[in-house]
């Protein structure tokens, strides 16, 4: 995968799009094991109910991992300088995550030509689960 040239990328471009399968209980179980985040809130419905929730819910970092995938589908990971996400709503079992990203700014930083990309992960109804940004170095 080649790094896109700085000149080929414009503010307002939307180079990122990824739609996931609905988050299943199995997704949460696999993510808990693979990520090492064993918080029972995500995998044990009995625990979640005792804590006042109606059901288990997804790890915020699963949603951020999807955003990461959407980013590295566009550019090689070595071009990513920083990556931030704020978790704005809980992701429930059965929801799909749709990741999008828009080029917000072109900048020169530390001798590199970079872009700031605004990222969003929303469910199938457009409810935003995580909003963030990445700084990416272009060629």
């Amino acid at each position: 995968m080649a790094v896109p040239s700085f000149d080929s990328v414009n503010v307002g471009d939307e180079p990122i799009h990824l739609e996931t399968e609905p988050v299943a209980r199995a997704t949460l179980a696999l993510y808990a094991g693979a990520s090492g985040d064993h918080n029972p809130m995500h995998i044990d419905i009995d625990y979640a109910k005792k804590a006042g929730e109606s059901d288990v819910f997804a790890h915020g970092m699963l949603v951020m991992a999807y955003l990461g995938r959407s980013l590295t589908d566009w550019v090689p990971q070595t071009a990513v300088r920083s990556f931030t996400a704020r978790f704005t709503a809980i992701t429930r079992v059965g929801e799909k995550i749709i990741c999008t990203g828009k080029v917000a700014e072109k900048l020169e930083q530390d001798g590199e030509k970079r872009v700031k990309v605004e990222l969003s992960a929303a469910n199938q109804d457009g409810q935003v689960k995580a909003a963030g940004e990445a700084i990416v170095a272009l060629a």
Partner: peptide, 12 residues
């Protein structure tokens, strides 16, 4: 049971 992840950032 009371915590949520508010935000996360990485600088590479």
């Amino acid at each position: 049971g009371k915590i949520l992840h508010g935000s996360q950032s990485f600088t590479y």
